[in-house]
């Protein structure tokens, strides 16, 4: 991967190279944002809202999002539901199995910071961002499918601002 990572930096130094990299950025970002495949990772109540968002009325397929069962084939992970300490090791493992570039949504109150299980609870991890880096937080208990779709659109905006020259530096430190 070493040479390919350095290619954008070299191209930029050539005269007119900036135009090439920004157009390639645009193409890559468009294609990445329009076909995010998410991994089925429903833990608790928010999983049902995630399934409802992918089903008939609030269709995810029109954004190009299809669910894939295996983390190797997905590039988006909805952490939907409460994460306990017992499960957090497995969540980290699944995150590491997803190939770069990968994105994480913290869906629902429990994944954002523990939710209703913050007080008096000995087994719940208070927020998934203690183990993996999160891109978008979606509050709600459970959030409506419309909130979930707004989160996806915000993620698409975020992806469209990425640049190829970010690849050279490790931008996702786990």
């Amino acid at each position: 991967m070493g040479i390919i990572e350095k290619v954008p930096a070299y191209i930029e130094r050539l005269p007119g190279g900036g135009i090439v990299t920004t157009s390639m950025d645009w193409v890559l970002n468009q294609s990445r944002a329009s076909s995010l495949w998410y991994m089925l990772f429903g833990l608790a109540c928010c999983a049902i809202e995630m399934m409802a968002a992918g089903a008939s009325r609030y269709d995810f397929d029109r954004f190009g999002m299809i669910f894939r069962a295996s983390p190797r084939q997905a590039d988006l992970m909805f952490v939907a539901g409460t994460v306990t300490h017992k499960m957090s090791k497995r969540v980290k493992l699944l995150y590491e199995q997803m190939a770069e570039p990968s994105y994480v949504f913290a869906m629902g109150g429990c994944a954002c910071n523990g939710g209703p299980f913050y007080y008096d609870c000995y087994s719940v991890l208070k927020g998934i961002d203690q183990v993996i880096p999160v891109d978008i937080y979606i509050p709600g208990c459970p959030p409506r499918p419309e909130s979930l779709m707004e989160g996806c659109l915000k993620l698409q905006e975020k992806i469209k601002k990425e640049k190829m020259s970010d690849w050279a530096s490790d931008r996702k430190e786990v």
């Binding site: 539901g81 409460t82 306990t84 017992k86 497995r90 007080y119 008096d120 609870c121 087994s123 719940v124």
Partner: peptide, 14 residues
């Protein structure tokens, strides 16, 4: 036990 949220413990304090 991967979703054990100690609801019975919470009940004693609500």
């Amino acid at each position: 036990g991967y979703l054990h949220r100690s609801i019975e413990k919470i009940a004693e304090n609500r």
